[in-house]
Design a protein around this nucleic acid. Structure first.
Length: 733
DNA sequence: CCAGGCAGATTTTTT
DNA sequence: ATCTGCCTGG
């Protein structure tokens, strides 16, 4: 088979350049996945490289699986021995083999964001620090930054000895790491850092991997951070056949420590490197590309490049300004219906927004219009309480010294083990330098505990011991079922007998099918592997491939994906770009890159919308269109604003005194409304008289554009939802 | 020990 | 607006 078929000159050059460092600057939609798959196939088939000598690092597991599948389709040989995965999953694989060489136990647990928060809370409490001054998320962010810079706690404390606040951050960092170690747990950052440490301190391990990985690929290189960069250098160090692919215009993870200079300095960092630019786009129409180019040109810190395509023209870019987010959602829903009647299918559409919270109004309108959809990210399956609980059980059973998980489930379902009891056990544990579970094993020697507490604890310990024994002889799926039965978790939910409990049970069943899936897919039935798999899933990975539905997600999640028709919604200053980026040039540039990513997801049709009024935290904000819309200029087709609700219910009186938007800085709090014909000054509790419903009491008031939506409880009629402007009511006062 | 009620924060993006 | 965590009374 000819692996060069169907490639353009540049792509071909990239495939053929196999030896030495190679940087592929791949614009959006320029066929980089094609290049990588063909290149790997070429290496294996034409150059006789063993798949086991190839390492490919991608941004999500889904991307890794796709890559593997696509390479597999090009080849006759099996690709199973090839290493493909995210930085995190690759590192877990390396660490499972050899982490004992740096003093951890190989059955380590991976802590996700929630576990991290619980852990840092524990640290803040233990150090007696004020939890308002040391907010968990902010402390964690700082720790993560320090880890990324490979600054160790002691060094940081010494550097900042005179600064009370920073010194405490350092102390917290130190304690946090200590506890992680004690609980035999690693957070996301640690997975990579510990791998780097392992490789640096054990030359035989390093040597093994350096020999093994003759060819190393890194995708989305613009979003790698410093530690990942270092790891890349270590792994590819011997053969030096490192091929990185990326696009600096699509670097959108700066806030997470991604370091754009990794890609900008590639040529300096790697001797004798070659750079290939892929600028021909195969995804989008000329109109879409023009728009994208026009926006990204406003960034000053970038290498100039220009995407071009042979798909001339195309549909114009549609732009629509709507009164509020509800209208925006209805507009999108009805446009989708319209396009479907023209032959599009549901899976062709994506709705992209800046923040997860925006999905709500779209969900509402889609449910109303009966359009099937799925949401990527946001309210995540794996974040549900019941799933976290089960996972916590599994984590403890696999790694009993994991105090964080143990404390989560020791009294779930309720078994009469209260906080006072747990505190006493924990105290005993720390005095004897043991884990909580270790302390529980010698229950009788904890003198502080009264008989009742011991009577509650004893059955728990026996149960856990029994489960640990069973774990050794059972497959993951069977074992999970055993856990939910033995612990009484399901029984408790069944007893509750509420709709909510029913949903939780469904979710647990879903989780079991995840386990079945895992066993089938990997042929593994090992709990450790399963847990690592669950912990390292990205949002994109976690979303089931429901086929024919509309997709909703944040722009971040959309990276690397493409859709025939894209709705880029909520394009308002203060939302996109987000407020905190508005007065910071480099953050604003990242927002602009984000906008660029959003626009370039579209193949054929792109709609851009914004809402004049957006409700945040339940209060009304007047907004201005995003500055990015200004920058798009004549590349978009601007139309007069339309009010869908006005078409449905004709509101005549309020079209004349439309509020003027406030001047920048853009989002301001709603002012008291000017009074119209009717007395707009109503409040909850006021009595009203309705022509048909009679006397009622206002129980709720919501701002609606220039109007107010009232919820009124009428005597004998129940609750009614009415618009103040048009409802035939008078206020009785 | 626990359930239910209230006050307060929360929302940028995530492996 | 919704969720979380803390406090109080049983």
């Amino acid at each position: 088979m000819d692996y060069l078929n169907g490639l353009n000159d540049r792509q071909r050059e990239a495939v053929l350049h196999t030896d030495g460092p190679l940087l592929i600057l791949a614009g959006a939609g320029s066929g980089k996945t094609k290049v990588v798959t063909h290149k790997i196939a070429y290496l294996i088939e034409e150059k006789g490289i063993f798949p086991g000598n190839i390492l490919a690092i991608t941004f999500t597991n889904k991307a890794a699986n796709e890559l593997k599948e696509r390479v597999g389709r090009l080849l006759s040989a099996s690709v199973d021995t090839m290493w493909m995965g995210t930085f995190h999953s690759i590192c877990v694989r390396i660490l499972r083999r050899d982490i004992d060489k740096i003093g951890y136990n190989r059955s380590f647990t991976i802590y996700d964001r929630d576990d991290q928060i619980t852990l840092i809370k524990e640290c803040i409490k233990e150090k007696n620090l004020d939890k308002d001054t040391y907010k968990e998320s902010s402390v964690l962010a700082q720790i993560s930054k320090l880890k990324d810079a490979m600054t160790d706690p002691d060094k940081f404390i010494n550097q900042n000895y005179k600064d009370f606040y920073l010194r405490n951050i350092g102390e917290l960092y130190s304690l946090y790491q200590e506890k992680l170690k004690q609980y035999n747990a690693l957070d996301f950052d640690d997975l990579i850092i510990k791998t780097v440490q392992l490789l640096k301190s054990n030359s035989d391990v390093l040597d093994y991997y350096q020999r093994k990985f003759k060819y190393v690929f890194v995708d989305e290189y613009q979003d790698t951070n410093k530690v990942q960069y270092e790891l890349t250098i270590l792994l590819s160090g011997k053969h030096n056949n490192i091929c990185v692919v990326g696009d600096s215009d699509q670097s959108i993870y700066g806030w997470r420590g991604a370091d754009i200079t990794n890609i900008l300095n590639f040529e300096k960092d790697f001797q004798n490197s070659t750079t290939i630019m892929l600028e021909q786009n195969y995804r989008s129409t000329q109109n879409i590309l023009n728009l994208a180019n026009k926006v990204i040109k406003n960034n000053s810190e970038r290498k100039d490049k220009n995407l071009w395509t042979e798909n001339h023209g195309g549909e114009p870019i549609y732009y629509e300004e709507l009164p509020d987010s509800e209208d925006e959602a209805l507009f999108v829903a009805s446009k989708i219906e319209e396009l479907i009647s023209q032959g599009y299918s549901l899976s062709d559409f994506a709705i992209l927004y800046r923040t997860n919270a925006q999905s709500r109004s779209f969900e509402d309108s889609f449910i109303r219009k009966n359009i099937p959809y799925k949401i990527v990210g946001g309210l995540k399956f794996y974040d549900r309480k019941e799933i976290k609980d089960i996972v916590a059980y599994l984590k403890v059973l696999q790694n009993p010294v994991d105090n964080i998980s143990l404390k989560r489930i020791i009294n779930v379902p309720k078994r009469g083990i209260g906080n006072a009891t747990i505190d006493k056990v924990e105290e005993f544990a720390s005095e004897t330098n043991d884990s909580i579970y270790g302390a529980l094993l010698s229950l009788d020697s904890i003198s502080d505990l009264n008989g009742r507490a011991k009577n509650s604890l004893k059955p728990f310990v026996d149960m856990m011991n029994k489960l640990m024994a069973m774990k050794e002889v059972m497959g993951v799926k069977d074992f999970i079922e055993e856990v939910i039965n033995t612990t009484g978790y399901i029984r408790e939910l069944e007893r509750e007998n509420t709709i909510e409990a029913q949903t939780r049970i469904e979710n647990i069943k879903e989780f079991i099918s995840v386990a079945i899936d895992f066993e089938m897919r990997t042929g593994e039935s090992n709990l450790e592997e399963f847990l690592a798999n669950v912990a390292l899933l990205s949002d994109v990975d976690k979303t089931s491939d429901t086929t024919n539905v509309v997709t909703m997600m944040t722009v971040h999640s959309a990276k690397g994906l493409e859709f025939p028709a894209v709705f880029l919604v909520g394009m308002e200053d203060g939302l996109f770009p987000i407020t905190r980026a508005v007065d910071n040039e480099s953050e604003l540039e990242e927002e602009r890159r984000l906008c660029y990513v959003a626009v370039t997801r579209a193949e054929k049709i792109l709609f851009i919308t914004n809402a004049r009024v957006r409700t945040i935290y339940g209060n009304v904000n007047y907004t201005l269109p995003s500055r990015f819309i200004e920058e798009m200029g004549d590349a978009i087709e601007k139309k007069e604003k339309k009010n869908i609700k006005e078409q449905l219910v004709s509101v005549k009186d309020f079209t004349t005194n439309r509020e003027k938007a406030a001047p920048r800085p853009f989002i301001i709090q709603a002012q008291p409304k000017p009074q119209g014909d009717k007395n707009l000054d109503v409040s909850v509790g006021d009595k009203v008289k309705h022509k048909k419903f009679g006397i009622g009491t206002i129980v709720q008031i919501k701002d609606r554009d220039n109007d107010k939506e009232l919820v009124i409880s009428f005597d004998g009629e129940g609750l009614k939802r009415l618009l103040l402007s048009i409802a035939p009511i008078e206020i009785l006062r």
